[in-house]
Write a protein that binds this DNA or RNA. Structure first.
Lengths: 217, 217
DNA sequence: TGGATACAGCCTGTATACAATCGGGCTTTG
DNA sequence: CAAAGCCCGATTGTATACAGGCTGTATCCA
């Protein structure tokens, strides 16, 4: 399940960070049940830190607990998904605006490089996964550059909660790649308005890939 | 410290809800240390539920814990306060837009009633407290009417985190009352754009009451 | 054969015991 | 008298024991 322990002041914090990372990068996919004793074994810990870490994740919103039944990696239904997209529509364009012109060239170069490496003509399973990864890294780079840690973490959580629906957006592969190129350019050139607009369309398109319509801009 | 126990499936949840309510309505003000044994006594519980509730509140962002030293009701510094206001500037106008025309008349009437009861000429300590209370109830009514539970809870948390700075906005008493009246009217008439704009100015004004300038609309 | 029920095992929720860490006050010493 | 070091009490962090609920299975009855 995992490898070496990471350093941390308290055991609870270590377990929390470990689980959080595993949820965010989908090693623990949406809906995964979190069994105490198994986590104790896998994370080399005892029940108290594991339980406290789960409770903290519950507060963050990444974990759902059903009393006397167990905890699960949070899973949202369509209705909640659309609500989350609405929130993201308010936050992500703003973050992109703030980040424009503030992301190191090296970071942007690397992302562009990876985008170019994708096979747009006939994307394979790996290409989908890679794009998803790039998307995550780009959003994160924006979050960091925006200089607002709370905003960054919030967006990361909301993005994670949407993961259960991301497979529905495969039809948009080509569009998404285009959007990413355009976004990278706007961010590089410091065109805040442009970056914000592209991000809005990007998130909106993601939300609309599902059979529902959203609010207006 | 408090009265009767509230019903709940698990003890942890009960303690969590109790503490959360106490933090949100400032019975537990910003910075208050949360001593385990004292909470056990006051809430008639044992350490495990108390600790788990605290951890969950930590995840929500309402509590901060310093390892081996203790937990405290979250307190933000000026820098973080401004960042939170920036997030609220993205969310609250949107929520107001969504809520326009969807808040029951009775709710709006009651709020307007309470606004009229304030002494605008020479506000006393009670008037300040009452306005703060009205403000909270209005924001909450908007959050509920927006029909997005996650958004509502998020805004409530962010608002709570700003409480440490709300005393600085006393100079704006009269302006705030005006803004509330205007907002109530727009919400009642279903003027979404207007409601959104007023809310933006309202939050922005709150943030700018402090010696710093914010981002642009 | 179908369904209801009782039972068993596992899992979660809670309480408590034990260990580690921190802060404060006292003592000691230059 | 001031500063440094040490010790002790208190509080937090962790481990474990105990209790109660839920699920799934097997059995019994109609």
């Amino acid at each position: 399940m995992q490898g070496l322990k990471v350093a941390s002041d308290t055991e609870t914090e270590r377990v929390f960070e470990t689980l959080k990372a595993m949820i965010l990068d989908t090693r623990l996919p949406t809906g995964t049940p979190l069994n105490h004793s198994q986590l104790c074994r896998d994370l080399q810990s005892s029940r108290t830190p594991v339980r406290e870490a789960i409770r903290k994740l519950e507060g963050v919103g990444l974990v759902t607990t059903v009393p006397h039944r167990g905890s699960y990696v949070a899973q949202v239904d369509l209705r909640e998904f659309l609500q989350i997209v609405e929130i993201r529509l308010q936050l992500e364009p703003f973050a992109a605006r703030q980040a424009a012109g503030r992301i190191p060239d090296g970071t942007l170069d690397a992302l562009e490089e990876r985008l170019h490496a994708l096979n747009r003509a006939a994307p394979t399973e790996e290409d989908f996964a890679a794009l998803h990864q790039i998307d995550g890294d780009l959003h994160h780079a924006i979050g960091v550059a925006a200089g607002n840690r709370r905003l960054d973490e919030l967006m990361e959580t909301l993005r994670s909660l949407c993961q259960g629906f991301s497979h529905d957006s495969r039809l948009r592969f080509d569009v998404m790649v285009d959007e990413h190129f355009a976004l990278l350019r706007a961010l590089r050139d410091g065109e805040a308005d442009e970056a914000s607009t592209i991000m809005y369309k990007h998130v909106r398109g993601f939300g609309e890939a599902l059979p529902r319509l959203m609010g207006s801009p």
